[in-house]
Simulated scan of single mutants.
Amino acid sequence: MGRRRKGRDISGILLLNKPAGRTSNSAMVVCRAIYNAAKAGHTGALDPLATGVLPVCFGEATKFSQFLLDADKAYRSRFIFGQNTDTADADGEVVSEADASQLTKEALEAAIDTFRGDIEQVPPMYSALKKDGRPLYELARKGIEVERAPRPVTIRRFELESFRPGALAEAVVEVHCSKGTYIRSLAVDLGEVFACGGHVAELHRIKAGPFDESGTVTMDTLQALRDVEDFDGLDALLIPVERALEHIPALHLVESCAYYLRLGQAVFVANAPTEGTVTLFDEHGQFMGIGEILDDGRVKPRRLIANM
């Protein structure tokens, strides 16, 4: 018999504005403690230096975190040209310097244009990707560098918002991209174009999937509510998990279909799509979970909310 988790049995998504200096995992652990939640997980790591939108899933919402992990992201970042660091961001040690005075706004915009669309990107050594079961950052901290295969990513939008020339030139950019994109690698690769080096000085995630920074809350706000034990106020900040899945076609089921799907059986549903993934809602409009369309047109339950 499995051991029962301690904590409150709550479900939903918290949009945290992650502070700088924390890993995504440590921020999630603090949120879980503040909420006294039985189960929690985050939906895609941000570097310790980074701030911004970090969806934290509680309870049943953790079953659907992959859909946020796979979603597009958007960032605002400040790049420094004229220096390379060992981590490709301002948290690292400077390993090389070169005068970036020759860099102009026009030249940078032209270079940025070549990074839009489908590109291949070499992940940085300081990343959570694994080599023979070990995270690359562990090897990097020991001074070990290994070959990394380029990975396909999509840069949907890459705009230069401001530019300050100089020996250490600065650029503020906004990037909308597919999952798995490393903004640090964009800074490094642009630095290589101009043979001056580059790294990320600041990084702020402004959007993750359907969620933008306008709906985020700070850890200070959460802690203030916890200090007065206002759990109703904390719970009111949670977003229903179906909000993260609004891009997926929805099926509203009659009672009999909902009944058999809850038993794990595939059913025929009128006017269902002919293929792909669907969200499932019962006859009362309550979210049930995720289903998929089989080759014969039936809807099969893929991941359902428990205790319905």
Rank of each mutant, 00 (worst) to 15 (best):
R141P: 05
F163R: 09
A140W: 08
S24V: 03
L129H: 11
A149V: 13
L234I: 12
R76Y: 00
L54H: 07
E97L: 03
K300L: 08
T62M: 12
Q66S: 14
T221P: 00
E174L: 02
P48C: 13
T114Q: 14
V153L: 07
D86Q: 06
A171H: 05
Y35M: 15
N307T: 14
V254Y: 13
K63P: 01
R303I: 05
V241N: 08
L69Y: 03
A33E: 14
E292P: 00
P48A: 13
G198N: 00
D220K: 14
E170A: 07
Y137A: 09
N84Y: 12
G41E: 07
R157K: 15
T279M: 08
M1A: 06
F79Q: 05
E192C: 05
T104V: 09
K130M: 06
S11R: 05
P210N: 06
R157Y: 09
V278A: 06
A50K: 01
C57T: 12
Y75G: 09
L168H: 09
D232A: 15
Y35P: 03
D212Q: 11
G92C: 08
I10K: 13
I183W: 04
P240F: 12
L136N: 11
L103A: 01
D118W: 01
A149G: 00
T279Q: 08
E202C: 10
K105T: 10
T274I: 07
G82T: 02
A98Q: 10
A45Q: 03
G215R: 11
I248R: 06
G276E: 00
I144F: 01
F79C: 04
K63I: 02
L129N: 05
G52V: 10
V200K: 00
S96M: 04
A38G: 15
M1C: 04
L234S: 07
P240N: 07
T51R: 10
G133Y: 04
V122R: 04
A40H: 12
A71C: 12
F81D: 01
P123K: 12
M28K: 13
I119A: 06
T218W: 12
T51M: 04
V53C: 07
S185E: 08
Y259K: 13
R76I: 11
L160Y: 13
N36F: 10
V269L: 12
Y259F: 15
L160T: 11
C57Y: 11
K63W: 11
A111T: 03
